[in-house]
Amino acid sequence: MLSVAGLSAYYGRAHILDDVALDVGAGEVVVLLGRNGAGKSTTMKAIMGLVPPAAGRVRFAGAEIAGREPFEIARLGLGYVPEERRIFTELSVLENLEVGRRPPTAGLRPWTPERLFALFPSLGAMQDRPGGRMSGGEQQMLTIARTLMGNPRLILLDEPSEGLAPVVIERMAEAIRALKSEGLSILLSEQNLHFAQLVSDRATIIEKGRIRWSGSMPQLLAADDVREQYLSV
C-alpha cells in the first residue's frame, strides 16, 4: 500500500532523514518507534509532502507521490493526523468534519458524521461545540475523525497518545483496532511502547533520522537488547 525507499530530508542544513525505508501493507498497522527528535514526525511530514523530501521514493497505492503537493497526496487517499492535533478551534465539531470531507473511496465503506460518532461517542454529544472548547482527548478523537472524513485508504497517525490520560489512551487503542478491522492501513508513530504493542502488527525503529531495526511486534518484544538500546523504557 505504502512503500518508502531512500527517503532523505533536510531542515536548513541539518540532515534530519537519511535513507529511510519502510512499508505498510494493506490492512496493516505499523508503528514507527523512536525518541523525540528521532525523525518520526518528519518521516510522516515528508511522506505527506509537508516537508519537501530531498531524495527518495514514496509510492502509495501504485503512484509515485514524492515531491507532490500535500493536497494532491491527500486526494489519493492518504490521511494525516498531526502530532499537535491542530483542530480548527473556531469551527464546531461538525464544521471540522466538513473540512475533511472528500468523496467516497472505491471498496471502502464511506465515512459519515453518524458513523464517526458511533466510533467516538463523546464527539456525538458535542456536535456544535467549538473545537477550542474541548479537552485534549476529545480534540485527539476529532482530529482522527476529521481525517477519516476524507475516506483515506491509509492514515499517518503521529503520536496519538502524547499528553493523554491513561484511560483515554486505552479508548484510543480500541478505536484504532476498530479502524483496522474496517480494512484501513495505519502508520503510527509512538514513544509509548505499551500502547504501540496493543495495536501494532509490525514495528520499525528510527533514531537520528535512520531506520535501525524492523520486525514484527512479537520479535520486538522478544528482543530485549533492541528495546534496551533504542527505547530504554
Binding site: 491513561p166 489512551i169 486505552e170 487503542a173 505499551h194 500502547f195 523504557v233
Partner: peptide, 12 residues
C-alpha cells in the same frame, strides 16, 4: 483508576 489511570495496560 476509573477516571484516570485505567487498567494499567498502557502504563506498564
Amino acid at each position: 483508576r476509573e477516571v484516570y489511570l485505567g487498567s494499567g495496560a498502557v502504563t506498564g
